[in-house]
Structures are given as structure tokens and as C-alpha cells.
Amino acid sequence: IEGTTVKIGWLRQELDDLDEDQRVLDAVEDVAGRIMVGDKEMSASQLAERLGFTPAKQRTPVRDLSGGERRRLQLTRVLMAEPNVLLLDEPTNDLDIDTLQQVEDILDSWAGTLVVISHDRYLIERICDSTWALFGDGKLTNLPGGIEQYLRRRHELVASASPVSAPKQAAAVGDSNAESPRLSAAEHREARKTMNRLERQIEQLSAKEDKLHADLVVAATDPARLVTLNTELKSVVEQKETAEAEWLEVAELLD
């Protein structure tokens, strides 16, 4: 990549570029104090918190972080440099659901070029406009149809390696390709991004719903706490139902 205006940020798999003696916040602020994410300005502390480091955790020495926490710190530092070309190697490894949602939101609105290597199809479908794959033939293959095209291609390769199942597999692929697409490639990508975002949201809300049900059992003898928990539960259930309805609407467009 060439050009005087190109500023590259690189997230590697290795975790050997962190100062063990620094606190988390110091390690982030060493890169920059503030950053623009989309149209919003954020401090180093705010970005760190979005990526899973609570204010208390930001005071923790780097040496005391787990492997997953170091990975998140490394990503935070890369983003704080505000590169206009981001090279990300498996950026969602070791992330919990809440942090994963935050990372997706940040990358989806990133003002620059992203080159992402990942096995996370939801991440790829949400933040990437162009998908490429390796099929073991020594070539990099462009997939205008995204992950769905990749899966079809993999099925074809498996079928070609298995003479017994090849005719059946080829017929299935042929039937699929015979259908007239209702959406353009760009519209299909956007619909898939929306579905992936909703699936993550539904997963988060389901986890919150389960926790609230458990909390209700514990608070059975505390009337005031029960009222608060019931209100929270009602809100979560309504949000989940809305997200599920939106998901169904988008899914119908992709049928």
C-alpha cells in the first residue's frame, strides 16, 4: 500500500508489543487522548470502556491482564491511532458478546478501509463490502455473493471429491442458482448486515432475559426489588420481540 496519506493500523495475533509495567489507560493514552468514531468524539477512557475495560479495570497493570484482555487492549491501541487502513487478523478472538457488539458497531462506522481476516461470518457480513476466500488452490478468489457463495463453493468442492454425492449436491446448487434474485448484490449485503446485527442483539437480550428470571427467583422476598426487576424484564422482552419481528421481515426479503 503506497501513498503519503495512507496511515496503516495492524492488529496482529501476537501479543508481544505491550509494556508490562503500564496501566491499561496509560497504554491507550500513549497512542492518543481522543478519537473520532463516526461523527462522535471519544476519549481514550471512553473507547477503552466500550471495548470492555471498566474504569476500575483501566487502572490495572498490563502484566495482570489475561490473554483475551491483552487482545482487547491491543485493538484499542490500534483504533486510537485512527488509521485510515486497518489490517485486522481475527479481531473478535476472545471477545464476549457485549464487547463483540461494540467492536462490530465501531468497525461498521469506521471512516477508512478495512482488511479483515476472520472465521466469524457474522462480523464479515456486517462490516465488509467485498469478500475474498482461500480454497486451497493457491489463489485468492473474490466472492460477489459473500459468505453464501463461499458456502456453495465449499459444497461444490466437497461434492466433486465424493462421486456418490456429487449429482445430488450439483442439483441442489443448480436449483439455488436458478432462482431469480429479488435483491441486488448491494441490497443483499445490507440485508445480511442487518440480520447479523439483529441476531447479535437478540442473543444479548436473551442472555439478559435469562439473568432477570434468575434474579427474580433470588428476590422473591423483596417486593421493591421484584417491581424493579419486572419492569426491566418487560422492557427486555419487548425489545427482543421487536428485534425478532425485524429479523423475520429481513429474512423474508432474502428467501
Rank of each mutant, 00 (worst) to 15 (best):
D105W: 01
A245Q: 15
A44Q: 06
K193L: 01
G112V: 14
T231S: 09
P144I: 15
V227I: 14
V250M: 05
S176W: 10
E209W: 02
R34S: 11
T54Y: 05
Q13H: 09
N93G: 06
F135G: 06
G145E: 07
R153G: 07
L198G: 04
R152E: 13
E244H: 03
S45K: 07
A32Q: 07
S206E: 12
G33W: 03
P223Q: 13
R71Q: 14
T99K: 01
E29C: 04
R200Q: 11
V116K: 04
I35H: 01
R77S: 13
Q204L: 09
D19W: 06
L18G: 04
R154I: 15
A243H: 05
D30G: 05
A251S: 10
K168L: 14
E148G: 12
S43C: 09
Q204I: 09
L183F: 11
D137P: 13
V28A: 12
Q169C: 12
L143P: 01
D105H: 05
A48R: 08
D105P: 01
I127Y: 01
T221S: 09
D39I: 03
A32D: 12
L107S: 04
R153P: 02
E104H: 11
S162P: 00
A171T: 08
V78N: 03
D105K: 07
K193F: 02
Q74L: 10
P61G: 09
V31G: 06
V116G: 05
V250C: 08
L107N: 04
D16E: 10
R12T: 12
A224E: 15
L205D: 03
I117S: 14
N142R: 12
V116Y: 01
A207R: 15
E2N: 07
L95T: 02
K211V: 00
G145I: 13
R12Y: 01
H188P: 02
L87F: 11
A178I: 12
L226P: 00
A185K: 06
T92H: 01
K234T: 11
A171H: 10
I147K: 02
D26Q: 13
N142K: 14
V85Y: 05
S45Y: 00
R192E: 09
Q101V: 08
I97S: 10
L87D: 10
R72N: 07
V164N: 08
V158C: 05
L233C: 08
K211F: 03
D16C: 07
E69H: 09
I1G: 12
F135C: 02
G146V: 11
T4H: 11
D19H: 09
V31N: 06
F135K: 02
S109C: 13
L216W: 02
P167T: 11
T4C: 06
E252Q: 11
T113N: 07
P144V: 15
V158M: 10
A207T: 04
E238N: 06
E148T: 13
G112D: 11
T5M: 10
L25V: 15
M195E: 15
M80C: 08
N84I: 11
E69Y: 09
S180H: 03
A171S: 12
A166V: 01
Q13F: 07
T4Q: 14
A133S: 12
L65S: 07
